[in-house]
Simulated scan of single mutants.
Amino acid sequence: MFTTITLQNFRGFPSFKLENLGRINLLVGENNSGKTSILEAVEVLCSRGTVESLGKVMNRRGEYLEWEEDDLKQWERVFDIRHLFYGHEIEPNRFFSISGTTEDSRETLSGLVQFKNGSREPKTPGGYQGNPTDDLSALLMDDGNQLEFQLEWHRGKESEQRKMRLLFSAGLPVNPIRYGTRRLRDLETPKSRIQFVNSSSLTTEKMIDLFEQLVLNPEEKLVQEALQIVEPRIERIASVRSRINRNSDSRGGFVVRLSDSDRRIPIGSMGDGIWRILGIALATICAEGGVLLIDEIDTGLHFTALSKMWEMIWKTAIRLNVQVFATTHNSDCWMSLATIANQESSAKHGIRIHRIERGKNTSVVFTDREIVVAAERGFEVR
């Protein structure tokens, strides 16, 4: 498990450290304080900075550009990597870094923008003046100047490096192989298992894929028990694949059987809470040995279900060795977590609330005991 996460020049953080991490870490704070950015940083770090992981992060936020290739008369989509950097700006030699420490190791990912080997340095000694985007675009119009985006990941003796040529205005191609991505010092070692659940939950296709990993395994029963938090009558659940159900806008793909009915009930007809709990349960179980990230964890759930949700996540995380990072704005959500923090076993594994405050370079940490006291006395931790 990570004990600290450190960010530098990433998203809205010039410098930030998340310390005293536990098994469950609930991030609270005002809007636009950077809670989701921290989840993304952990996701990219645990994925070793793959192009796929960066693409997922930027695609969720709509951070891409579309442009027409003159020769092919086709529209090309590129990810706008400026938004990964503090200040939404890049120039040669600008970088960001994300690192995490455990009890026995340190893991680091760095992103660097630099001139490609053989291309020229900028002619202006002072760098770029005026609008950085316009200056950078003008510079790249000269064929002698090409920028690369370099990602380097390190953990102990393991390391990976990727270099990707940037297109106009700091565009990272959706299909980077076509534009000469180079992958160096890549060790074929198992990657950390990581699951990200955003505020709108998982897509139907993703949930079916996760569910099929659990069918006929002992963990399948955990999914049923999780659904019973919202609807106690659910006795069984099954996936039903079809072309229609693979539509990301559909809440199909699953049917359940209730204790008082012989009919198969489409899960989409049973409300938002069932769908949300299903996604969280599947993601928790399939993150075995890795990290679970949940944005706005309480979305779609009534406050009466939150304590049981935390209990499900807590027990599963301990059993399957999962570290959890989640965000919320809801007071019912953190106060429900206090019921778990009051258990004797919580001190051993660690439950933490981290309040993220804009302009601060560390979080305000509440430990297990402090969470319980705050809930009992009505103190506000958000």
Rank of each mutant, 00 (worst) to 15 (best):
R165A: 05
V215H: 01
T339R: 13
M270N: 01
A281D: 05
K163M: 00
E370A: 04
G49D: 01
Q146Y: 03
I90N: 01
S15Y: 14
S261C: 02
S200D: 11
P232T: 00
L167M: 00
S346P: 09
I371P: 02
L337V: 12
K56I: 01
N145W: 04
N25D: 10
T203C: 01
D368S: 11
Q323P: 06
D249V: 00
I98H: 02
G126L: 11
E225H: 13
S110W: 07
N145H: 14
F149D: 05
I280T: 10
N321G: 07
Q228P: 00
K360F: 15
S201I: 11
Q195Y: 00
V240F: 09
E68Q: 13
C333W: 12
L282F: 11
S47D: 06
S307E: 12
S159M: 10
P218T: 06
L320M: 04
P232R: 01
S269A: 14
N25A: 09
E370K: 07
E63F: 15
R120L: 13
I353K: 03
D104T: 11
R48Q: 07
I318Y: 08
N25T: 08
C46L: 12
S269G: 08
Y128H: 05
G359W: 02
L54D: 03
G350N: 07
S261L: 05
L301E: 06
R377I: 12
F325G: 12
E188S: 14
S137R: 15
N31D: 07
I294H: 09
K73G: 02
T181Q: 14
G290L: 09
I90Q: 00
Y179L: 00
N20D: 13
E235P: 03
R182Y: 14
L27G: 14
I297G: 03
L172D: 00
Q161M: 11
R236M: 05
F85P: 06
F96S: 02
E188L: 14
I194H: 05
A326E: 05
P92M: 10
V322Q: 07
R82V: 15
P173T: 04
V197L: 03
V113I: 15
I24C: 07
K206L: 11
K157H: 13
L18Q: 09
G378C: 01
N321L: 11
